[in-house]
Amino acid sequence: MAENDDYRTVIREDEDGTRHIAIVRRDPETDQLTDDQIITDLQEWRAKREQPERERWPMPRPFGEWLMATKPGPKGPCPECGCYGLRRGANPAHPDDEKVICTNSNCEACPWYSG
């Protein structure tokens, strides 16, 4: 465990090789918790937080043709990732249901985001 005056870094590695790292502000409450308690609390918080239901569909092939067949989206950035790659497109399974989508495949709002 590495520490400085203001923050505490907690590192735990599971038997399967998964590494968990948390940085917490030092205060009387967190100073009383063990490393395992901090990591466990973080995992419980992540499991409980609300995850929006995202529509997923396959990556369009060829992508260039799909881009040419769709319309530009709003001029502003994606509210999730901040990129300016918004387009108006439809899920291939529902071609009449056009939506504004993010084309950044690294963004969770993108319909072909794979995680």
Score class of each variant (00 low, 15 high):
Thr40Arg: 08
Ala69Val: 02
Arg25Gln: 09
Arg26Pro: 07
Val100Gln: 06
Arg49Gln: 14
Tyr7Met: 05
Thr40Cys: 02
Val24Glu: 00
Val100Phe: 08
Arg8Leu: 11
Asp27Trp: 02
Arg88Met: 06
Asp5Pro: 06
Ala109Tyr: 00
Gly89Lys: 00
Pro79Asn: 07
Pro62Ala: 11
Arg88Gly: 00
Asp97Phe: 01
Gly76Leu: 05
Glu53Ser: 12
Arg8Val: 00
Ile23Pro: 04
Gly115Thr: 06
Thr40Ala: 13
Gly115Phe: 12
Arg8Phe: 07
Asp27Gln: 01
Glu3Phe: 00
Arg61Val: 14
Gly115Ser: 09
Arg61Asn: 15
Glu98Gly: 01
Thr103Asp: 14
Cys78Gln: 02
Asn106Asp: 13
Asp31Ile: 08
Ala2Lys: 10
Pro74Gln: 09
Gln37Thr: 01
Leu67Thr: 13
Pro60Ala: 05
Cys110His: 06
Leu67Ser: 02
Pro72Ala: 00
Met59Val: 09
Val24Lys: 04
Asp97Val: 02
Gly85Asp: 15
Phe63Arg: 14
Pro52Cys: 07
Glu13Met: 15
Pro74Asn: 13
Gly73Ile: 03
Thr34Phe: 08
Ala2Gln: 05
Met59Ile: 03
Thr18Met: 12
Cys83Ala: 11
Ile11Thr: 13
Pro52Ile: 12
Gln32Ser: 14
Glu53Asn: 07
Gly115Ile: 11
Ala109Asn: 01
Pro79Asp: 06
Pro77Thr: 12
Ser114Trp: 09
Val24Pro: 10
Pro92Gln: 14
Pro62Gln: 06
Val10Tyr: 02
Ile101Pro: 02
Gln43Gly: 03
Ser114Ile: 13
Ile21Gln: 07
Ala22Leu: 04
Gly76Ala: 05
Glu80Val: 02
Arg26His: 03
Gly64Glu: 14
Cys110Thr: 07
Pro77Ala: 09
Tyr7Trp: 09
Glu3Tyr: 03
Ala93Asn: 15
Ile38Thr: 05
Ala69Gly: 00
Arg19Met: 07
Cys78Glu: 11
Trp45His: 13
Val100Cys: 02
Trp45Ile: 12
Thr103Met: 07
Leu33Lys: 04
Cys81Met: 04
Pro77Gly: 15
Glu108Thr: 14
Glu55Ser: 11
Ile101Ala: 08
Arg56Asn: 06
Gly115Val: 13
Arg25Gly: 04
Glu3Asn: 08
Glu15Trp: 09
Gly115Pro: 15
Arg26Glu: 09
Gly115Lys: 13
Arg49Ile: 15
Arg61Met: 11
Ser105Trp: 13
Asn4Lys: 10
Asp41Met: 10
Glu15Val: 08
Pro77Trp: 03
Arg61Trp: 13
Ala47Lys: 13
Glu50Gly: 06
Arg8Lys: 10
Pro95Gln: 08
His94Trp: 02
Gly64Asp: 14
